[in-house]
Design a protein around this nucleic acid. Structure first.
Length: 97
DNA sequence: TAGCTGACGCAAA
DNA sequence: ATTTGCGCCAGCT
């Protein structure tokens, strides 16, 4: 799926926007899909700057299993993920069934 | 133009 | 299994 020749912001934007409900992608996965396999750092940086309501950035989590950060409200992110059907511990760790 | 920062990731201790 | 430190890329000052 790494066929995005678009610049970083556009590529990441498109990918995250196309994440289906009930599905989560890691920052690294998003970077790979965007065509910049090692830009997982830049992905987070970009989202923090953009924080677009059209982009379900709450579906982007860390590879460690933690939800990661959220520009609006970290607890809100966990809440939304739980609504998506994911199980999250009190520590904020996502438990994949 | 050059350097620092950050919603991360992974290897090593 | 957990904690610490280093590396990564693009964006911003």
């Amino acid at each position: 799926m790494t066929l995005y020749k678009l610049p970083f912001p556009s590529a990441v934007n498109t990918i995250v926007r196309n994440i289906p409900r009930g599905t989560v992608m890691t920052y690294k996965e998003v970077a790979v899909e965007a065509g910049f396999s090692g830009a997982y750092r830049a992905v987070g940086t970009l989202m923090s700057k953009n924080r677009n309501k059209n982009i379900p950035c709450h579906r982007v989590v860390r590879s460690d299993g933690y939800t990661g950060g959220y520009a609006w409200n970290p607890e809100n992110k966990i809440k939304i993920l739980r609504e998506e059907g994911f199980t999250i511990n009190d520590d904020g760790k996502i438990i994949f069934d």
